[in-house]
Write a protein that binds this DNA or RNA. Sequence first.
DNA 1: TTATGTTTATTAACCGGTTTATCTCCCGCG
DNA 2: CGCGGGAGATAAACCGGTTAATAAACATAA
Lengths: 370, 370
Amino acid sequence: MTQLKAPTLTEVSRLAGCSKAAASAVLNGSRGNISVSDALRQRVQDIARELNYRPNYASRSLALRRTQALGIYIPRGPWSGIGSNYEGHVLHGIELACVARKYNLSVINMNGNEPPQRCLDTLVEQRVDGLLVLRVDGDESWLAELLERRDAVVAIDCHRPLPGLDAVMFNHDDAIGKAVDHLVGLGHRRIGYLGTCCHQTVPHNELRREAYVKAIVRNGLQLDPALIFGPEQSPVSVERGNQHLQLAGEYGAGYFVSMGAARPTAIVAYEDLSATTAIRFLADHGLSVPRDISLVNIEDSRLSRQFMPRLTTVMHPVKEMGQRAAELLIDRASTTSGQAARAGVHESFDAELMVRESTAPPSAPTGVTP
Amino acid sequence: MTQLKAPTLTEVSRLAGCSKAAASAVLNGSRGNISVSDALRQRVQDIARELNYRPNYASRSLALRRTQALGIYIPRGPWSGIGSNYEGHVLHGIELACVARKYNLSVINMNGNEPPQRCLDTLVEQRVDGLLVLRVDGDESWLAELLERRDAVVAIDCHRPLPGLDAVMFNHDDAIGKAVDHLVGLGHRRIGYLGTCCHQTVPHNELRREAYVKAIVRNGLQLDPALIFGPEQSPVSVERGNQHLQLAGEYGAGYFVSMGAARPTAIVAYEDLSATTAIRFLADHGLSVPRDISLVNIEDSRLSRQFMPRLTTVMHPVKEMGQRAAELLIDRASTTSGQAARAGVHESFDAELMVRESTAPPSAPTGVTP
DNA sequence: TTATGTTTATTAACCGGTTTATCTCCCGCG
DNA sequence: CGCGGGAGATAAACCGGTTAATAAACATAA
C-alpha cells in the first residue's frame, strides 16, 4: 500500500496552463535552452507549492541517468560491524557530506550479510552513482572489476594503496609514533606492542606493528622482538571472529606477565577490547594500570573514555575521514570527464593523542634487569 | 563519471531476436498474459548472462511504481546517534530482514543532520516504499501527516502507542521487573532507581521509573520516593546533550551517597554511561560495586561487558526488534489492499537479564537503620 | 523593408523498463 | 469445414520526468 497519488509534473503544467517542458525548466534550473517569463515562473511555482509537488525520483533518475545517491559497503571485519564506534563515526561523516551536497545514502551492506559482489550489481543496475567501501583489507579482487569498469569508488581505510583506487587512509606511523613518543616522554624504555592473536591476515595489525618498530627505532631505543606480541606468541590459533580481540588482550597480557621482571613497563595496545581485557588480566595478576604498567590504546570509544582507568588513547579523525571520502566520491561521480585515466588519490589522516589515566611514568628504574 | 554503458533490455531482446516484451517476461516472472517458449526463454537467458544484464533500477521503479527500498530515519537522541550499540543492533536486524525480502535500505537520517520533514519528501518523491522511524519520543506531529497520507510507516521504540501507527516497542515493565526481581532475590530491600537528570522530557526514563514503581510494589517492598533519582533531585538543570547521561551517573551517585546509611543497597541504573560513571563516583567515595552496593544496568553494550566489574544488565532483543519492524513494514508496503483502515499493530518485546559481576547479596543486614 | 537576433515558449523524442491489447498460428472438436 | 481456444509472440502505450529541435512573437539593425 502506498500513499495517495502524488502530483506529477504533467498535472502541475496543466494547472499552470503551460507545457511540461516549461514547468520542468521552472522547477529545476534547466540546463537547456528553455527560458521562462517571470509571470509563468511565478504561476508554476505557486501551483507546485500548492500541490506539494516533488519530482518522482525514479523518473528523474531515469531521465538524468544519475541517481544522486551513494552506496556504502561495510564488510564484516575484526570489529563488530556497524554499531562500533568506528563505523558509527565514519557514517556520521559520510552523512554530513551527503547532506551538504544533497546526495542520498543507500546501504548495500552493513553487517556482512551480503557478499561484496552485490556492489557490482548495485552499480550496474545504476542504483547509485558511486560506491564507498569501508575497510578494504584481505581480498580485493572484486574491487578490480569495479575499477576496470571505471566506476566511481572510494575506499575508506584501505590497508595498502591500490593502483587507481581513491582512498582515505589511517596514518598508522603517526598514530603509533605519537603513542610511543608519549610513553618515551614519560620515561619508559621497555615498551611492548600488544597486537592481535589472529593468525589470519589482519592488515592493520601488521601496519601498526611496523609503525611501532619505526617509532622505537626513531626514539633511539633498543628494538627487542620479545616485546612484540602477535599471532606467533599466541598460545592458541585464534580464528577471526567476535572474540579474537578479547583473546588477544588476555593472551597478550599473559605473555607480558610471564616475562617477569623483563616485562615492558608500558604497552601499546591494538584496540580497546584488547586493552581493557588486558587491564583486567593484569589486575587479576596483581599488576595495576598505570601504577605498575602503562597502556596506550589505539582508536577511541565510549569504552576507552568510561573505563577505570580511562584509557590514554591515540585516535584518528574518523568522522572527518568519512566526510572527506564522500566528498571525493561525489566529485568523482559528478565529473563528466568520463573515461579519463584514474589518478588514484590517496589521503592519509594523522591521529590525535588523548592523554588520560592509563599512562604514568615508570615506577621502577628503567633498566632491563630488576 | 560513470561506468561503461550498461546493457539494456532492448539490446538483449535484439540479440535474442525477439521483442522487449518477451525478454522482459523471461527475465522476471511476468504477471501479464505473456508466455514464452522454452527455446526463446533459454536464448534470452543466455544472452542476458553473457552481457551481464541487470535491469535499470530507475526504469524498473518507474514502471512498477515501487522501489523495493525502505527508508530509515534515526533522529538524534539522548544516545549518541548511530555508532551506539542500540542503533547498531537495530540496523543489523533491519538489514537482515531487507536481505531476506530483497529490499534495499536507504538512509534518510542517521545523526540528526536532517529535519524529520525530510521523511515526507522521501515518500512523496517515491524514493522508498516505506519508512522506519527510530525512537519516536517527543514531538510526533510530523508523523501525523505521514499517517494521514496512508504511507507505510513503522516505528521502532515508540514511547506510547500512537493511533494507527505500527510499532515495535520495549516492554519496560518486563525489563525493570527482571532487574528488581533479581536484586530482591539476592536479598536487597532498599533498591534505588537512577534515572536521568535531564529536565526535558525523556520518555524512556518516565516509563522505566513507572516500571520500577510497579516492580517494587509487586515485590511487596515499601515504595520510598527518596530512592528515586530524577531531574527533581538533580542539583543542576541539565540540557539534553552529549554529557547528560554521564552527569546523571555522577549526580545520581552523589545523591545516593549523600543519604549516608539510609542509602540503597542496590541501584537500577538507566543506561551504561550513567552506570559506569556512577560506579566511578562511588569508588571515589570509598564504595565498591558490588561489595558495598549492587547495580543493574539497562541495555547492553561493549561497555557493560568490558567494564570492571562487568555490569549485570537487562537487555532488550534489539536486533530482533529491528528485524521484526522491517518485516512489518515490508508487509504493509507490499499489501495492495491500499486504503484499508489502519489497524496499528503494536508488538512489545521482553528483556533478558544477564547476570554478571556488578550484583551481589547486600553486605549489611537489610534493615533501614544502620 | 528585410535580415537578424532574442525571448518565450511548445512539441516530440528520449531514458529503460512493464503491460495491455492484439495478432497469428495451430490444434482439437463438432 | 468452421469455430473456439490456448500457446507464443509482438506492437505500442504507458510510468514521469528531461531536453533537443523548433517555432512564434517581437525588437533591433542594416
